[in-house]
Design a protein around this nucleic acid. Structure first.
Lengths: 194, 194
DNA sequence: CGAAGAGTAGGACAATCATCCTACTCTGTC
DNA sequence: GACAGAGTAGGATGATTGTCCTACTCTTCG
């Protein structure tokens, strides 16, 4: 590959800092220090702080899409893929305990700021929602696919929020286990149902 | 009763603004304008912004405790009271769609700010957790009472986060209905179980 | 070599922030 | 009616913010 351009470095550092500290609480100075660049020089790469936010959200959208695409090529079943999604909570448990869910916390911060980019951030949720709906459709739950997708998202947001508050890993594992059992019962009922 | 003192006005206005705009994004000027008081004069009532935050959290703790106490005196069953808790999502749906859950969003904001009052804000969660645990114990689920309490909290946090993102009232009602069914099954299993 | 343009350094800029101070106006008491 | 103390007004302060400008250093290509 190639070395990261300064612009790419800014975006990836800002991504991490926005996640850890929040968007508003992260200043140009913070990013500049982390990238080892002059503060005032940002103007050359990004006209405004909002432009950096847009770039960060777009990067997250791209990365997420790539992750989901890769899952699709693994020869697993739709059920396996949903399980993989649920288990992100375990995989990323350390970060989630420390900073919550990157999607949920960003969305709710931007909502409070009445920020123009709120709609963009919501696309991250929509990306997962659409993908999950697709998986449930493939599972044969076409009629309820969207409801089921939202239910999975609800669960993961709830777990992330409480994990962040209580730093309780046992709680996370217990809830994930329950969710996996729920998924099994959804699949079983689907075959019994008709 | 008596008219609200200036101090009480500041606290209740700050409470509302911290909820709607977030703590960091709310300035002294915002609060001063809403209370119709001179900005610089805050120092007389509160030494620092953090002191206002403490007062706001304490007020929320008191109000919440009062609400729960009142529920306890209604002659309802523990199951009714848990249902009442779950249905806060419906009662406050407008505010939740607009600003999320007051407890969850504050806790996660303070976590990102590494703010000293994070522990205080967490007490709001703990208050509900302890109360719910108590209700489940009364229901006869003593062994799992804390797990069940956390499960209810997880659910309500997840619904609040997604309601804030998607502004979807049907989704809220559907999830609340599912949660009530889940509660019924918990109660039923408890009698079958032993 | 020398011109051009990409990228950078460093600081200026006005705005906004929390904080703090001093001078003032009430209100009640002796 | 004088005094004390609670409460207020309004502005000063220094720090920090996002933004913007100008002068500089590279690299590239003729």
């Amino acid at each position: 590959m190639h070395n990261k351009t300064t612009r790419e470095q800014i975006v990836s550092v800002a991504d991490e800092l926005f996640y850890r500290q929040g968007f508003e609480h992260t200043s140009f100075a913070d990013i500049a220090e982390a990238v080892q660049i002059s503060r005032g020089n940002f103007y050359y790469h990004f006209k405004t702080k909002d432009d950096i936010l847009d770039a960060v959200i777009n990067q997250r959208l791209t990365n997420t899409q790539n992750m989901l695409d890769q899952w699709e090529m693994n020869g697993e079943t739709a059920a396996d893929r949903i399980r993989r999604f649920i288990n992100i909570l375990i995989t990323n448990r350390r970060k989630i305990k420390a900073h919550g869910c990157p999607v949920g916390t960003l969305t709710s911060e931007l909502a409070k700021l009445s920020h123009a980019a709120k709609g963009e951030a919501n696309k991250l949720f929509s990306l997962f929602r659409t993908w999950l709906r697709h998986q449930f459709t493939e599972l044969g739950c076409k009629k309820d696919a969207d409801d089921l997708a939202l239910h999975v998202l609800t669960f993961s947001q709830g777990v992330a929020t409480l994990a962040n508050a209580f730093h309780d890993e046992k709680f996370m594992r217990r809830e994930v286990k329950q969710m996996e059992d729920w998924l099994d019962s959804v699949i079983a009922n689907k075959y019994k149902g008709r």
